[in-house]
């Protein structure tokens, strides 16, 4: 479990490095084209990995229920919403609103076991964790706001 936790943290680091790189690229070529490039390279890399490393499974992407393939839509909708909203609400609010949405929905999915996930009981520890995230959000918001103030 600890190993998986480390893996997920590293994934977050990769995500933020990717955001920094894509931000630079996006300024030059536009958001859609930089995202397209990212997804294309990602597709190619994943395809290569599948060819050489993926063991065979009984089910395939073509046999699972179609709604299970909808994941990419949410990523793209998120991207479009952010592009439209950030000029209007600023990065500080956008960041906090994103994390708020993520946390609320992930609790719902975990607790109710939506989307075929194993249900996880909502205990006091998890509620305390959400409280801590809320504190972090307040700090992130204030810090980002100072930042924007300085940039003006």
């Amino acid at each position: 479990m600890v190993l998986i936790i480390v893996l997920a943290i590293v994934a977050g680091m990769a995500l933020s490095a990717q955001a920094a790189i894509n931000g630079q690229l996006g300024e030059r070529v536009g958001v859609v084209q930089s995202a397209l490039l990212t997804f294309t390279v990602g597709t190619v890399v994943t395809a290569l990995l599948i060819f050489f490393f993926e063991p065979p499974y009984q089910a395939t992407l073509l046999t699972v229920p179609k709604w299970q393939l909808a994941g990419a839509l949410f990523g793209i909708v998120y991207m479009v919403v952010m592009v439209a909203a950030i000029p209007r609400v600023g990065v500080a609010i956008a960041t906090v609103a994103t994390i708020l949405g993520q946390m609320v929905m992930s609790l719902v999915i975990d607790t109710l076991g939506w989307l075929d996930n194993a249900p996880i009981e909502l205990n006091y520890w998890r509620l305390a964790a959400m409280l801590a995230v809320a504190c972090a959000l307040v700090c992130i918001y204030l810090a980002n706001q100072q930042q924007e103030h300085v940039n003006e």
């Binding site: 299970q68 990523g75 929905m105």
Partner: peptide, 23 residues
């Protein structure tokens, strides 16, 4: 944006079971 953030959790929630089934 809050809705879009919820979408990101949905994406993660979809991926886990999908990965278990198809790799």
């Amino acid at each position: 944006i809050v809705m879009a953030g919820m979408g990101l959790s949905f994406e993660a929630g979809l991926l886990g079971p999908l990965g278990e089934q198809v790799g």
